[in-house]
Design a binder for these strands. Structure first.
Lengths: 364, 364
DNA sequence: ATGAAAGCGCTAACAC
DNA sequence: GTGTTAGCGCTTTCAT
């Protein structure tokens, strides 16, 4: 693997100038067919591949879009694999949030001729994640709360950045484009369903702390409660640190052990926690949904695989990824006015078994 | 979004040379703390982000690994969404082959400080997919049959390339590293199960043409048949063009309509086709597994969601992605001798309902 | 610990 | 249609 051949090598070997070699790759028609073939031939012989870096440097664009997302890996999800019956080591089935977004972005990017660079947060240093990605792409999307706000602030002055799934956090990020799901609407509707259709009134809400998404969802929950005359406090009944299965399992224990009447329904701010709770409830012999209803939020694949199947609010993550790319591309091609864009994608309530809705309704 | 600030701007603003600015980002400790802070400060003020391109050009490395995969999007899978009961528009649930690999690669890459560039094949031109990716990464993996063999041949002379899931096609690619799943072993074991444990003897195998993977699987099938004294021809009973659900559905029709005794089992070379067949059989009123057994290959999430759940062979795609990265990194750091590496990852047979094994065994 | 200068491999005017 | 010539923004010796 000696030194890679360059335009110069190819030019020399085919008796043309480097400019012509360059043209062959970027605008083949501007070169006489015969010349072109000659160039292509020697390129092949030499094993020449244009350096993306050099091209990017010279043309000031990379043809790559990026995505930064948090390290969502849920350790519990991994162990889920062992738990499965027989050889069903299917933690694979749990397609995450980020996987969906990646898929959506990749497709849309491809349609526009872009490749996708993905990177999950890990550590810090002056050389942060965003910086690394930002320096290599024409524009990128960031899953909320993945990177320090100030970093984004700085970078968004240089290139298009769209914030995903997280509401525009503070006012300093007002100028950032952002796309979110209708968290409030979804949770409101789900809550309404529990109250009105199932007649439940003693509800408990479980979320994380310092999450704008959770806040938005809780807001919907509270609104529905108030609308139905069900008492609510201004805060979730329980706040966990990270929304994993383990935490969901613990949360269920905590809530059941609290003095006073047992809640009739446990509303979790995401599916993973709800699944964890399902485990706990089964272990304790509490039947779902007969004794208690459980709901999640997100609509990850796992939510449909658990028994009872989880009633939840499905977020269009795939679409979010696509919209993000469309927006970035529009910015990049200048066909989008300066005004920051703010989209809210509609969600849908998936009524399944865990809330008491018809069993066996799902079918592939 | 005027011109982005460069090292020069930062250098000037903080009264140092560009070399120092550069050092601050690459090797912070080699600069006096006071100077460093000054540089970082002005960088922040200016909104400076190092250009990945320029860095890559100068340092001859990108810190990015790549993955090229075919455009696997199965149009049928999309429409599957509409088919689903109620609001279960869950084609999402079908986590593909490539998604798993991406996940595996991303994790492993992150551990080693690399980002991941992904791109699916689309069109041709002198500027092919590989070229685009190859020029921007330090090394990359390619899902078999995604790109022209000759392209790889050329590129692998410049940078590490590992071929995934496809056996080393021809001899010209002998020098390429490659990782594959134990296709033959898996299909042999599954076939043996059908024959010995379920006592089936009239089997039909359905694969695609010109697919090394399919060939390897068929080989295992044939071996198991011979070992059990079941007659087999040297060819799959049916070859389709692309292994989609639609094709699988048609294949089932074709096979059932053939004169002669109806087969007792349909063994498909992948899950998607098997799922398609399930639809056809249900439509025709043929019960699975009572009237006929059906099996797939891959172990995609969908295989577990369909009814009856599909018996299949699970490939460790996630792990394959991880191994690919490990290998690339080893090559990149020179801690891997010249010899081409060839790994074969073990697979496992998932016995579910469609072959006649216990119902309801699966549980999340 | 910091600076000066020479590229890295390509694209983009601008000539011819 | 093809060649010339500047850079693009950084890293990297080599000095100091």
């Amino acid at each position: 693997m000696s030194t890679a051949p360059t335009v110069y090598d190819v030019a020399e070997r085919s008796g043309v100038s480097i400019a012509t070699v360059s043209r062959v790759y970027r605008n083949p028609d501007s070169v006489r067919a015969q010349t072109r073939e000659r160039v292509l031939a020697s390129a092949r012989e030499l094993g020449y591949v244009p350096s993306g870096n050099a091209r990017g440097l010279a043309s000031r664009s990379t043809g790559v879009l990026g995505l930064c997302f948090p390290d969502y890996s849920d350790p519990d999800a991994e162990s889920e694999a062992e738990t499965g019956a027989g050889d069903e080591a299917d933690d694979d089935a749990a397609m995450l949030y980020s996987d969906q977004i990646i898929r959506g972005m990749e497709r849309a990017a491809r349609r526009h001729g872009y490749a996708l660079l993905i990177a999950a947060s890990l550590k810090g240093g002056p050389e942060s994640l965003v910086a690394k990605v930002a320096g290599r792409v024409d524009g990128f999307a960031v899953l909320a709360r993945t990177v320090p706000t100030e970093d984004l602030d700085v970078i968004s002055r240089r290139q298009p950045v769209v914030m995903l799934a997280g509401p525009r956090e503070s006012d300093d990020l007002d100028h950032l484009d952002h796309i979110e799901a209708a968290n409030t609407d979804g949770q409101r509707e789900l809550t309404r369903h529990l109250i009105e259709d199932h007649g439940l009134r003693r509800l408990a809400y479980i979320g994380a702390q310092e999450s704008p998404d959770v806040d938005a969802r809780f807001r919907g929950y509270a609104e529905a409660c108030r609308a139905a005359g069900v008492p609510v406090s201004g805060e979730p009944d329980l706040r966990v640190a990270i929304m994993t299965q383990a935490e969901g399992a613990r949360a269920a224990d905590t809530l059941l052990d609290r003095p006073g009447e047992r809640p009739e329904a446990l509303l979790f701010a995401n599916d993973q926690m709800a699944v964890g709770a399902l485990h706990t409830l089964e272990r304790r012999g509490v039947r779902v949904p007969e004794d208690i209803a459980v709901t999640g939020f997100d609509g990850i694949a796992l939510s449909r695989l658990v028994r009872p199947a989880l009633t939840t609010v499905r977020q269009p993550m795939r679409r979010m990824g696509e919209e993000a790319v469309e927006l970035l591309v529009r910015r990049l091609t200048g066909q989008q006015d300066k005004q920051p864009v703010s989209m809210m994608l509609p969600v849908t309530v998936a009524r399944r078994e865990s809330c008491g809705c018809a069993r066996g309704a799902s079918r592939a």
